[in-house]
Design a protein around this nucleic acid. Structure first.
Length: 366
DNA sequence: GTATGCTTTCGGC
DNA sequence: TTACGGCCGAAAGCATAC
């Protein structure tokens, strides 16, 4: 039986949530921004609605530049409210669970799902379910989304991309080659600029061309694991399954400093609250960590990190404080660059002894 | 040579 | 003219062990 896999993407999520909350925004360019607090307008655009995009404003753009693009266009410039979007997202994901066999949230505004068992591999049934899902989200949250259905994660994700904004794209197994073949390789999940330029050298620009490349050649150029993935993905045969309840693998906190500095102490002091926040995240997830990392982002926006791994998992606040302070010292000694932002990350997470993580509590493994 | 594990960097959203 | 977040997961790069 062919697999039936879906990918759902909430359209321009943060900005759409703001539009729903304040209907007077619709028709106007809307940008949802992260203000760093440095100067009045320093920070970047997190999400732009389609009206704002028409004028050239987009995510990742400095706020001041986006304002310039939107001058005279009556823009709404809104401060990002992560908690609010988190709440909406959680409600939607919880609602989705009852429509599908397995749900795998992928970030705040996306999810993969599996419908193989419940449809018996019937793509017509899957189409009806997908439409019901879209209607249900629109009814309960007044939000639109884009959905793709196909035989693998890569195909499903390409489908939802194609359907943007607001559409549904179903790619039944026998239509997969004609759907994939003309797609430019850089549209494939996992294929960035670096892979694209290597493929270009090999004379490969489309997924159809990729599917004809010899496996051995792809493995030689990209290594076994990624080479195999590229080969499989090019025909919609990438085999990753939809996995529910993925555990978090890291927690981090980054701040923009009050002023640029070369002094590691000065950076570290401004991270004190962030470190406590990470510690509380660990506690509420009942997780311990093995690796702690100091993150420096410099005035030229380049990044440097320094990390330390403990032999056994730890979870106490003082350990994070002391080890990250030491790592910032090392980082400071390793470069002449001037710090603009600083962060701390813990990774290598495991369940804290004698406690049960929230997801395990909700979905016991046995 | 291959597997494994750790550190650092990259890239998506 | 310039302008520039805060997360996350995973790849890349390297060292070591077998």
């Amino acid at each position: 039986m062919p697999r039936v896999i879906g990918h759902l993407d909430l359209d321009y999520f943060y900005a759409q949530v703001e539009e729903v909350e304040d209907p007077t925004l619709s028709g106007r360019p809307v940008i949802v921004c992260v203000f760093s607090g440095r100067t009045e307008d320093s920070g970047v655009v997190s999400t732009a609605n389609y009206r704002a995009r028409e004028f050239g404003a987009h995510s990742g753009m400095p706020i001041a530049l986006a304002r310039k693009k939107l001058e005279g266009k009556d823009p709404a410039v809104i401060r990002m409210d992560h908690q609010k979007y988190e709440g909406v997202s959680t409600r939607i994901m919880d609602g989705l669970e009852r429509w599908v066999d397995t749900l795998e949230p992928a970030g705040i505004d996306e999810a993969y799902f599996d419908l193989t068992a419940s449809t018996g591999g019937d793509y017509a049934i899957a189409t009806r379910i997908a439409n019901s899902i879209k209607e249900s989200i629109f009814k309960t949250e007044h939000l639109t989304c884009s959905v793709g259905i196909g035989r693998s994660k890569v195909v499903a994700k390409l489908g939802s991309d194609t359907a943007k904004p607001g559409g549904l794209k179903v790619i039944p197994p026998d239509a997969t080659p004609s759907f994939l073949d003309p797609v430019p390789v850089e549209k494939l999940y996992g294929v960035g600029p670096k892979t694209t330029s290597v493929l270009e050298e090999m004379g490969i620009r489309t997924v159809g061309q990729l599917s004809k490349a010899p496996l051995a050649e792809l493995e030689r150029r990209f290594g076994k694991k990624f080479g195999d993935f590229l080969s499989a993905a090019s025909t919609g045969n990438d085999s990753d399954s939809v996995v529910a309840n993925l555990e978090p693998t890291q927690f981090s906190r980054i701040v923009t400093l009050k002023r640029d500095t070369t002094d590691p102490h000065e950076a570290f002091e401004q991270l004190a609250g962030g470190i406590e926040y990470i510690h509380s995240k660990l506690a509420s997830a009942a997780k311990s960590f093995r690796t702690v990392t100091a993150i420096g982002i410099y005035t030229d926006l380049s990044t440097k990190t320094k990390s330390k791994t403990f032999e056994t998992p730890v979870d106490d606040l003082d350990t994070i404080r002391e080890s990250s302070a030491a790592l910032f010292e090392e980082l400071g000694g390793s470069t002449d660059k001037v710090l603009r932002r600083a962060g701390v990350r813990v990774s290598g997470l495991s369940d804290t002894e004698g406690q049960t993580s929230l997801s395990e509590f909700l979905h016991p493994v046995k």
